[in-house]
Amino acid sequence: MNGPAPQVPDFEARVRASFAKQGLMRTLGASIARVSSGAVELVLPTSPAVSQQHGFTHAGAVASIADSAAGYAALTLMPPGAGVLTAEFKINLLAPALGERIVARGKVVKAGRTLTLAQTDVFAEREGHEKLVAVLMATLMTVEGRSGVDD
């Protein structure tokens, strides 16, 4: 990624520790697939527990992992001791989320001192092929003194 460098050398451990404290991600069954500077990929296995009445993965589950991927992408670039909170997001649902798993790839578009803009592309993986099913744009705020790991 061309952009700001991480301000914390062990940013991946920081992201993973914070993610481990997320009750919703645990409830949904989501996990971290990749962490790099300014980017995070989350994976959600599909199951009846996260489906809606037509058998697709529920938009709420899709939005949740998309928001978390954007937030954790932003966290990779935040200063020591700071945490991240979503201030706003907009999601476009492009197609039903139908597949064996849902993959959310969050990336920082522009990192700022107080606000960061991130985008998440969400794909449904089915029989080895990916289909773009949603795009989320998020504004995330830096929260000083609330790392989300030690508090």
Results as ranks from 00 to 15, higher is better:
Ala82Thr: 13
Val143Ala: 08
Ala63Thr: 03
Pro48Ile: 08
Val149Asp: 04
Glu88Gly: 08
Ala97Glu: 08
Thr120Lys: 04
Ser36Asn: 09
Lys110Glu: 13
Ala61Met: 08
Ala97Phe: 07
Arg34Thr: 13
Ile91Ala: 06
Val103Met: 00
Met141Ala: 13
Thr27Trp: 15
Leu98Val: 14
Arg34Leu: 13
Lys90Trp: 02
Gly60Glu: 03
Gly23Met: 12
His54Ser: 14
Val103Trp: 00
Val133Asn: 03
Leu85Phe: 10
Arg34Pro: 14
Gly29Phe: 01
Ala30Ile: 06
Gly112Trp: 06
Pro79Val: 03
His54Trp: 15
Ala104His: 01
Gly112Asn: 06
Ile102Phe: 00
Val108Arg: 00
Gly29Gln: 00
Val135Asp: 10
Ala69Ser: 10
Glu41Phe: 07
Val108Asn: 02
Gly55Lys: 02
Ala33Arg: 12
Phe11Ser: 02
Ala138Tyr: 05
Ser31Pro: 04
Ala118Ser: 13
Arg146Lys: 15
Gly38Tyr: 11
Ser36Ala: 11
Val135Asn: 10
Gly23Leu: 13
Ile32Met: 05
Gly71Lys: 07
Ala70Phe: 03
Ala104Asn: 00
His54Pro: 12
Gly128Trp: 07
Thr142Gln: 15
Pro4Thr: 13
Met137Asp: 15
Leu136Ser: 09
Leu77Ser: 05
Ser51Lys: 05
Glu12Gln: 07
Thr86Leu: 05
Thr57Met: 09
Val108Gln: 00
Val62Phe: 02
Ala5His: 15
Gln7Ala: 11
Arg146Ser: 12
His58Met: 04
Arg146Leu: 15
Glu144Tyr: 14
Leu93Pro: 03
Arg113Glu: 13
Ser47Gln: 04
Ala39Glu: 09
Gln53Phe: 15
Arg126Trp: 12
Leu136His: 04
Glu144Leu: 13
His129Phe: 14
Tyr72Lys: 01
Val149Leu: 08
Ser64His: 01
Glu41Met: 10
Leu136Ile: 05
Gln52Trp: 09
Val108Gly: 00
Leu24Phe: 12
Ala134Phe: 15
Leu136Glu: 04
Met25Asn: 07
Gly99Met: 03
Leu117Asn: 12
Ser37Pro: 10
Gly99Tyr: 03
Val35Met: 03
Ala87His: 02
Val50Asn: 04
Gly71Cys: 10
Ala13Thr: 11
Arg16Ser: 01
Leu117Trp: 09
Asp150Pro: 10
Val103Arg: 00
Lys90Arg: 11
Val15Met: 05
Val135Arg: 14
Pro6Phe: 04
Ala49Val: 13
Gly60Ala: 05
Gly81Cys: 05
Met1Phe: 15
Ala124Arg: 03
Gly106Trp: 02
His129Ile: 11
Leu140Tyr: 06
Asp150Thr: 14
Ala97Asn: 07
Asp150Met: 11
Leu75Thr: 01
Leu115Pro: 07
Asp151Met: 02
Gly128Glu: 08
Val8Leu: 02
Asn2Asp: 12
Ala73Gly: 11
Ala49Ile: 13
Pro6Ser: 06
Glu88Ser: 11
Gly128Asp: 01
